[in-house]
Amino acid sequence: MKAIGFKQSLPISEKDSFIAFETEIPSPTGYDLLVKIEAISVNPVDYKIRQNAAKDTVLDTPKIIGWDAVGIVEAVGDTTSKFRVGDQVYYAGDITRSGSNAEYQLIDERIVGYKPKNLSIAEAAAMPLTSLTAYEALFDRIRIDAEKDKGKSALILAGAGGVGSIAIQLAKKLADLTVIATASREDSIKWCTDLGADFVVNHHNLKAELEKIGYSQVDYILDFVDLEGYWEMATDIIKPQGHIVSITGSSKPLNLNLLKNKSVTFSWELMYTRSMFTTEDIERQHDILNHVAHLLDEGILKSTLNTTLYGFTVENLKYAHEMQESGKSIGKTVILY
C-alpha cells in the first residue's frame, strides 16, 4: 500500500519533510478493523508531531501520522462486534499507533463510529478529532448539564479553529449556553457568527471586549489556542466556582494558586487519553462519534469543512500542514483520496 511519512523532523518547506513509500497492508486481530481510507483531515497535532517526533535522529522507516479518517471496513479482528466488512466509518485514531496518512489503517473499533449518512466523505472526514475533543471538554471534563447550566456563559478561545468551530455548535445546540468566541479577522468573525456564537470578541483586547458586551466574567473558559499566554487573563475573568478546560498544554508550570480563592476547577482535555491507556470507558468514543453522526445527519450540527484538496499526495499533505502552521486556517482542511 502507499503511505506518506517522514524520517526526520524537517521544516515543511524541505523536500523530504514528507516522503511517499510502499509498505505492507496490515492484518487485523483482536478489536481492530482494517479500514481502506477514503479521506483524511489535518489538525494542529499533525504538524506538532511532525516537528518533534524525529528532531535529533533519522528514523529507519518513515513514521506515518494522521488522526482523522473516513473509510470502508475491509476486514475485522477476531473479537470485534460493532462493525462488518463494507461498513463506512469515521474516527480520530490513536496517537500511539500508525496513523491515517496511508491507504489502509488498523483501528480499534471501540474508538470508531459510523460515518454520518447525509454528509459527503469530505464533510465527514473533517469531524472526528475536533468533535471528540470539544464534546469531551464540554460534557466529560466540565460536565455541563443542559438543564441545570442552560444560559451560562462559555468563552471559547480560537472560535474559528477546528475544535472551536464544533465547540461553538455543541455549546449552543446541546447545552444552550451563551457562547462567546474569540476571533479578530473579518472572515473568522463571520465564521463564528454563522456557527451560532452569540458574541464574537477580539482576543487582542479580550478583557475590554468582554466588558463591552456585559460579561466581565464568564462561567466556563475553553482554551483551544494558548493556555500559557492566556493563563493570568483566564484566572481573572473566570467566575467564582467556574471551570477552565484546556487542550494546549504549557511549557512551564501554571500557578494554580490563582484559582484558589475562587474555588475554580481546572481540567486538561486530551482526546487520546482513552486510547493511550485503554481506559475502562474507551468505548465512550464510539458512542460520542455515533451521537455526533446523528446530530450531523439531523442538521443540528454542520460540518466544519472549509478546504478540500484532491489526491493523496505529498504535495497536498505538505500544503495542508502549511495551512495549519500558519495559524490562520479556518475550520478544517480535508484531503480526498
Rank of each mutant, 00 (worst) to 15 (best):
A171I: 01
K262T: 03
V89T: 07
L336H: 05
N52T: 15
Q88G: 00
G5D: 10
I121H: 05
Y272M: 07
F139R: 06
Y310F: 07
A39T: 04
E22K: 14
K115W: 01
A92N: 11
A75P: 00
G77V: 12
G93V: 01
P44Q: 02
Y135W: 13
A183P: 04
G113V: 00
A181C: 01
I244E: 02
D56G: 08
D236H: 05
N316Y: 15
H243K: 13
A154N: 10
L34C: 10
T248D: 02
R110P: 06
L317R: 03
G196T: 01
S13I: 15
A181F: 05
G311W: 09
D16A: 03
I107E: 06
D140K: 15
D78A: 07
K82S: 12
P44A: 04
A293V: 01
P128G: 02
M1A: 14
S9G: 06
E322M: 13
L157I: 13
Q217C: 09
F21I: 06
P128N: 08
E280K: 11
D198N: 12
K332S: 00
D68I: 02
G66W: 11
S165I: 06
I65S: 06
G299Y: 01
L210C: 04
V179D: 05
F199Y: 13
I221M: 02
G99E: 05
R110G: 10
V73I: 07
L119V: 07
L295I: 01
E147R: 14
S165Q: 00
Q217R: 15
I335Q: 02
D32A: 01
Y90K: 02
T279F: 06
H291D: 09
E103T: 11
E14D: 08
V73P: 03
V201F: 09
F224D: 01
V89D: 03
D68H: 06
S267A: 14
E103N: 14
I244C: 13
D108L: 00
R284G: 15
W191I: 10
D56L: 14
D94K: 01
T96N: 12
L34S: 12
G299E: 02
L296F: 04
H203V: 06
